[in-house]
Amino acid sequence: MRGGIPRSPGRIFAWGMAGLVMLWLTAPVLVLLPLSFSGRRSFRFPPDTWSLRWYENFFTDSTWHASLLTSLKVGLLSTAASMILGTMAAFALHKLYFSGKAFVTGFLLAPMIFPGVVSAIAIFGVYLTWHISGTLTGFVAAHTVLSLPFVIVSVRSALRIFDWELEKAAASLGASPFETFRLVTLPLILPGVLIGGLFAFVISFDEVVVSLFLQTPFVRTLPVQMYLSVTESIDPTVAAASTIIVIVTVASILISMLFWQKRKTSDA
């Protein structure tokens, strides 16, 4: 290898395949971005005229910006709830030993692997009984259930490398259990909690299947509005909305990666 470039045929082939996969995954985004600046009411690619009219429509049309605000409210509230509940659950699973622990762990992580439509039907059936379908409370509760496993996994990973002798040292100096957690444990596992919260927000902000079952004309998230826009009309505003979602998602992932890398560098 010279200058960081792989020279063996096997490595060249591997890098070439990796590049093709990356191109295949990013191609829709590369098409989507120009469409969001099209000056015509069509999905013609490449656009022959350019305009910001669809971004203007996104932020001025009551239907679109109301769905964006709903997604942000649901995302932030469900993220806060999942961070609190997920941290508590991760502590319980890490520190407590009881029969059926494997079952409880699998139950808490099940939303991560269940098909979305199965979860949607189950949640919708329960919500009809509880009369909270189509309410902000119902959306927040459903999104919390879906994002909770990601916080649990992230916090448990942080707890595995936590030095528990620090808690014993704090207790020996007279700190109460709550003070030990607030002043010693939480600051050290905070990166895991925040990364789990970022993933929880992304999961909530992008979720469409469960939200499609719970939506009403008055409470509707942005992904649901995008789905309805595509199926009911030809409106390039959906391209602008999609671009905004991609930017929010990528920014959240990059922030989590940079934060984690900075934490690892400072610890080293």
Rank of each mutant, 00 (worst) to 15 (best):
L30I: 05
S119C: 05
L20E: 15
G4V: 05
F178I: 08
T221L: 02
I84M: 12
V151W: 06
V117N: 15
L146W: 11
I123R: 09
F218W: 14
P111L: 03
L32V: 15
V208P: 02
P46K: 11
R7Y: 09
S62Q: 07
S67A: 14
R41K: 03
L35W: 14
S154A: 04
W64Y: 08
I113N: 05
M22C: 05
R41C: 01
A66D: 14
R263Q: 11
D206C: 00
S147G: 10
I5V: 14
T70C: 09
R220K: 08
P217N: 10
S154T: 13
G10N: 06
L159W: 03
A90Q: 02
V202N: 11
R220W: 07
D48E: 14
V118R: 12
A92D: 08
R11E: 02
I195N: 12
L77S: 09
S62Y: 15
P177Q: 10
K168H: 06
I234Y: 01
T231E: 04
P236Y: 03
Y97F: 10
P34A: 01
P9W: 04
G192N: 07
L254W: 07
V118Q: 13
L32K: 01
D48T: 00
P236K: 08
S233H: 01
S38N: 01
S147M: 03
S82D: 03
R7A: 04
W260Q: 13
T221K: 05
T144M: 06
M22H: 02
L93V: 15
F218N: 08
A89C: 11
L186W: 13
P177C: 01
G10P: 02
F124L: 14
S62W: 12
I189V: 14
R7S: 12
V118W: 14
L186I: 08
A239V: 04
